[in-house]
Amino acid sequence: DIEITTNGEEDAKRVIKELQKRNLEYHIEVHGNQWVIKVR
């Protein structure tokens, strides 16, 4: 598993777009303004 910590929603959406392009499965956890994306 890979864990990507982003700085808020805009940053997270940019990362998610890339993950979707590669058809990767991911899970999002929001901790305040930090979005942690866990990639399987």
Rank of each mutant, 00 (worst) to 15 (best):
K13W: 15
E10L: 09
G32T: 03
L19Y: 02
T6L: 14
L19E: 00
E9I: 12
G8D: 13
I28Y: 04
I16N: 01
N23D: 06
G32Y: 03
L24A: 06
K17V: 10
T5M: 11
E18C: 15
V39W: 06
R40K: 13
V39I: 13
E3V: 15
E18N: 07
I16G: 02
T5S: 07
L24N: 02
I16R: 02
N23W: 05
R22S: 06
N33K: 07
Q34V: 14
I2C: 14
E29T: 11
E25R: 13
H27P: 00
V39F: 09
E29A: 06
N23Y: 05
E9T: 05
E9Y: 14
V30F: 09
E9R: 09
L19S: 01
K17A: 14
Y26G: 02
K17P: 01
G8L: 06
Y26D: 00
I16F: 03
H31Q: 10
E10G: 06
E3F: 15
G32P: 03
K38I: 15
I37E: 00
K21G: 07
L24E: 03
R14F: 10
I37A: 00
E18F: 14
L19F: 04
E10F: 08
Y26S: 01
I4F: 09
E18H: 08
R40Q: 09
D1N: 11
D1I: 15
H31S: 09
K38V: 14
K21I: 10
K13Y: 14
L24M: 10
H27V: 15
T6K: 03
D1M: 15
N23I: 03
V15K: 03
H27L: 11
T6N: 02
E10Y: 09
V30A: 04
E10P: 05
N7A: 09
E18S: 08
G32W: 03
E25N: 10
K17I: 12
H27G: 05
K13F: 13
K21M: 12
V36D: 00
K21P: 01
W35H: 02
E29M: 07
D1E: 13
V36Y: 06
K21N: 10
H31W: 09
N23M: 09
E9W: 15
E18T: 07
R14A: 11
K17M: 13
Q34L: 13
D1K: 08
Y26R: 00
I2W: 15
N7V: 10
I2L: 13
K21H: 08
N23A: 08
E10I: 08
Q34K: 13
K13V: 09
Y26W: 08
Q34T: 13
Y26V: 04
R14E: 08
I16L: 06
R22Y: 13
R22P: 01
R14Q: 08
V36A: 02
K13Q: 12
K21F: 10
K38A: 04
R22N: 08
V39K: 00
V39P: 01
D1Y: 15
N7C: 15
E10M: 08
R14D: 05
L19N: 00
Q20P: 01
T5P: 05
T6R: 05
A12M: 12
I28F: 04
K38D: 01
G32V: 03
N23L: 06
E3G: 03
I16Q: 03
K38L: 11
K38W: 10
K21E: 12
H31R: 15
K38C: 11
